[in-house]
């Protein structure tokens, strides 16, 4: 097992994830490792990105932290220390309590986390009653204010409506209002805008930015979109095949992406401000071509810089020797500084 390399958590760390590993599979089968030794820290008021393509383990990472993985058929190892307590050791009741009070989560599909037969206003109010001990009438008034705050037009009317009566963007706002209701210290947003139109995405991202600035809430932003990351995240973790392959502060990462996968992703994206009619520098193949991390670098079969050692030895996550800032890299043959894409 490669050791997690990030420095020990500093005192102002809010959440410290260490060597998080999640395996799926029932007895008798070879287990499938969806998340493999993931470590990262989140400080108050900081936005940390988890970015990568479909199936790389983003959602499983967040569900494991939140204690929301299915009860059976998986094995979780490692730790997720929140304010001195390892969340992974809490029992159901303790975790449920935490989820209302300290940590909240919003998902790509807000409908799945809203109760279809309870009006939006009551759902927000219930959170306030349960976690902030408010009386019903005060909770309803506060609920209205929260809906207003997240930009739901005509909140007094919307209060009485049911989830199916709202558009996708409005539902996501309602969910954010519910998350805000418990004044969480950590918010995990799993692809919160992926199902939305880009102009609505801009509204929601703005709302999240304001939230972080105004309340000092820490945000873990899960997305496959490097564009979203570029505008939002202080610190970025790039995942591939369940492992972090590169970690760096936002500016550092985009200015000198060193991992061939990060580079490949950047080269694959048609940029609104990019040159046209040029071939995109696509990454060949698909994740189906991966080799197991235990026998080398999972990305090697798709990697333009793969050398012999890449198929023979598992690369570990280490501080990039040439970077000035914190910049972790899991690669035998990274791009020279400055990248190529």
């Amino acid at each position: 097992m490669t050791a997690p390399s990030p420095a020990p958590a500093t005192t102002d760390t809010l959440l410290s994830v260490r060597d998080l590993t999640v395996e799926f599979g029932t007895k008798g089968q070879t287990p499938f490792r969806a998340v493999d030794g993931v470590s990262f820290d989140v400080r108050p008021g900081q936005t940390v990105g988890l970015v990568g393509e479909s199936g790389c383990g983003k959602s499983v990472t967040s569900l494991a932290i939140m204690g929301l993985l299915p009860k059976r058929g998986n094995k979780v190892a490692g730790s997720a220390t929140f304010d001195g307590t390892d969340l992974l050791t809490l029992d159901d009741r303790e975790m449920r309590d935490r989820r209302g009070r300290d940590v909240a989560m919003i998902f790509q599909d807000p409908l799945s986390s809203l109760n279809p037969v309870v009006s939006i206003g009551v759902q927000v109010a219930e959170v306030l009653q349960r976690h902030r001990g408010m009386k019903k009438s005060a909770a309803m008034a506060e609920s209205r204010d929260l809906l207003d705050k997240v930009g739901i037009p005509d909140p007094s009317r919307r209060l009485k409506e049911y989830p199916h009566q709202l558009s996708g963007g409005m539902r996501q706002r309602a969910l954010i209002a519910m998350a805000l209701a418990c004044k969480p210290r950590l918010l995990i947003a799993d692809e919160p805008t992926t199902a939305l139109d880009v102009t609505i995405q801009a509204q929601i991202l703005n709302l999240l930015k304001e939230l972080v600035v105004d309340s000092g809430t820490a945000l873990i932003m899960i997305t496959h979109d490097l564009g979203v990351v570029a505008g939002l995240c202080d610190e970025v973790n790039v995942l591939y095949g369940g492992r972090i392959v590169e970690t760096a502060p936002r500016h550092e990462l985009f200015a000198s992406p060193r991992h061939p996968y990060t580079n490949g992703l950047l080269g694959s994206i048609p940029r609104l401000d990019g040159a046209r009619n040029e071939q995109l520098a696509a990454i060949p193949g698909s994740v189906a071509d991966n080799i197991p991390w235990t026998s080398g670098c999972a990305f090697a079969p798709r990697c333009s810089r793969a050398i012999d050692v890449c198929r023979a030895e598992t690369p570990s996550l280490e501080q990039d020797s040439v970077a000035i800032e914190d910049h972790l890299l899991r690669c035998h043959n990274p791009w020279p500084t400055g990248g190529e894409a």
């Binding site: 985009f254 609104l272 401000d273």
Partner: peptide, 14 residues
């Protein structure tokens, strides 16, 4: 508005 909402993978521009 549409154009301004399309994220660009470059923090300096964003």
């Amino acid at each position: 508005a549409l154009m301004s909402a399309v994220p660009i993978p470059d923090p300096l521009i964003e």
